[in-house]
Amino acid sequence: MTAVQIVFLAVAALTLAAAVMVVSLRRMMQSALALILALVGVAVIFALLGSGFFAVSQVVVYIGAIAILIIFAVMLTQNSMSPEHSQMNPGFLYAALGSALLFSSLVFILSMWVGFYAIPVNLDPSVDTITVLGLSLTDPQGFALPFEIVSVLLLAALIGGIYIARDHHRD
């Protein structure tokens, strides 16, 4: 077992533990903090997979923006649910059972697939992945159109978010 593998297993275990905390803790604030931990874990996995760019993006976008936004929302709605009561819907066992079943059967099916045991190829050191990615995002014969559409989507979400969250009674 190499050092990278040990790091991976440790990070994966930590991430999964944090994810379980996200969905099981009673206090919303604690589960939001656990979410941040899980997101950091995913960022480390990204780095292990050789994409420093997305590891950094993960920290900036998910932790810096999304998780903080969620924490704000938790604070704004704090007094709506008391942590004394269970945070689970009735019937959550069915959800757990279904998820577990689907998980194990997918792992079982995947284990029969030859690509499942692939080991990584060495990346060509002369190719700068970020440069190629950036060029293909702006190339009309590449992903220029999807990229522009994503920017429109973000704009629409921005405007929609402002509009929905605005207090209409006070206008």
Binding site: L16, A19, V20, V22, V23, M28, S31, A32, I70, A73, V74, T77, M81, S86, Q87, M88, N89, G91, F92, A95, A96, S99
Partner: peptide, 14 residues
């Protein structure tokens, strides 16, 4: 785990 959380938790933020 995420799917379970989305289905089973009471809180909409969850």
């Amino acid at each position: 785990i995420g799917l379970f959380g989305a289905i089973a938790r009471k809180n909409a933020i969850s």
